Simulated scan of single mutants.
Amino acid sequence: MKRKQQKFHLYRWKRKVFAAILIGFCFGSLVLMQTQYTRIVSLRHRFAQKPKIAFLFIARNRLSLEMVWDKFFEGGENRFSIFVHSRPGFLFNKATTRSVYFLGCQVNDSTQVDWGEASMIEAERILLRHALEDPYNERFVFLSDSCIPLYNFRYTYNYIMSTSTSFVDSFADTKQGRYNPKMAPVIPVHNWRKGSQWAVLTRKHAEVVVNDTTVFPVFQQHCKRRSLPEFWRERSAPVDPAKEHNCIPDEHYVQTLLAQEGLEGELTRRSVTYSAWDLSSSKDHERRGWHPVTYKYSDATPKLIQSIKEIDNIYYETEYRREWCSSKGKPSRCFLFARKFTRPGALRLLNMSVLGGEGVEARNETVAK
């Protein structure tokens, strides 16, 4: 009797072990199948997902030209993302923006930006940090709150994605007063570059900017805003104004950093954003050229837009270099965006249906097909 009980208990124990093994095998198979399924779905999604362009807006408060951009982003088909940096405390919501594209796109760690200070490039770095969190973002476009798109989204996307390079306006700055000798030896003068801050960066170059712990601190320390004559009434005048340095960080930082890293061979050394600098616009000689021309309602005409679209080369005096613009290896127009436009001026262009459309090259390709 005792032996039978022992056999019975052994039999029950074996059944439990077998059941446990069977359950474990089934559970393991289920987990493996789920993992494989998730991987396949992920690969399919990754294969189907097109690379995106991150549009990085630096704004004071609201985006006054949002309706122009609202029209531009229509039909983007998940090929773009938007990030907005505005002053701390300002909130983008349904009360401050009428475009659904900008809701939920504001970064939550913005900094106070002061013209002529390193805070401007810190804002750029903040935008890039957020944009890089999306692995599908492969190009990063800096835009101001006064920028307008000249073409439609399709043409702009194809133009930017047609090259593996960044678009960075970069040239040797030989004028005295911008470079501070105290920056050496970290930043030698032969690596000092100047250009427009409105760049288009590849993911690789965006990561270089975000991970920089060498050049940015030097800009913070030695790039200080020079006091202009109209402010000398409020504080004592400098002993020697000529020795004050106003390096304008946003016009030098990205260009100089990429030169420091030996990456200039990976750049298309021009901007795709047009700005007009009229040195005779101010009667005050000290303020001439500090800011680009602002286009008001009366300035915003089809003729103006057409003249900007027809520009096909840029000349750099300090390097005796003429940059002929190209796209997909063919001669092309230089600019995709333009600034600085007031809200009335931009809305006038939008109502006249002047903005948008394909470039000449795209129309020619369509005809050829």
Rank of each mutant, 00 (worst) to 15 (best):
Q5N: 09
R12C: 07
V17N: 06
I23W: 10
M33I: 13
R39I: 02
L43E: 15
I53M: 03
L56G: 02
F57H: 00
I58G: 05
I58S: 14
A59H: 08
E66M: 08
E66W: 12
V68M: 13
W69M: 01
F73Q: 06
E74F: 05
V84Q: 03
V84G: 01
F90H: 14
K94I: 11
A95F: 06
T97F: 04
N108M: 10
D109C: 10
S110Y: 06
W115M: 05
A118I: 10
S119H: 03
A123D: 08
L127E: 05
A131K: 02
E133T: 14
S146I: 00
P149C: 06
I160S: 13
M161C: 01
S166Q: 14
S166H: 15
F167D: 05
F171P: 01
D173V: 13
G177F: 08
G177E: 07
Y179E: 08
K182P: 00
P185L: 14
I187C: 06
N191A: 03
S196K: 05
Q197F: 04
Q197T: 01
W198D: 04
R203P: 00
Q220W: 11
Q221H: 10
R225Q: 13
S236Y: 15
P238G: 09
V239M: 15
D240T: 05
P241T: 12
P241G: 11
Y253L: 05
V254L: 13
T256E: 10
T256Y: 14
L257V: 02
R270V: 10
S271M: 11
S275M: 05
D278L: 08
K283Q: 09
D284W: 06
R288S: 14
G289C: 11
K296I: 03
S298P: 01
D299R: 05
E310T: 00
I311Q: 04
D312A: 04
Y316V: 01
R322P: 00
S327M: 12
R339W: 02
K340T: 00
F341S: 01
T342L: 04
A346Y: 03
L347A: 03
R348Q: 09
M352A: 12
L355E: 07
E358F: 11
R363N: 01
R363K: 09
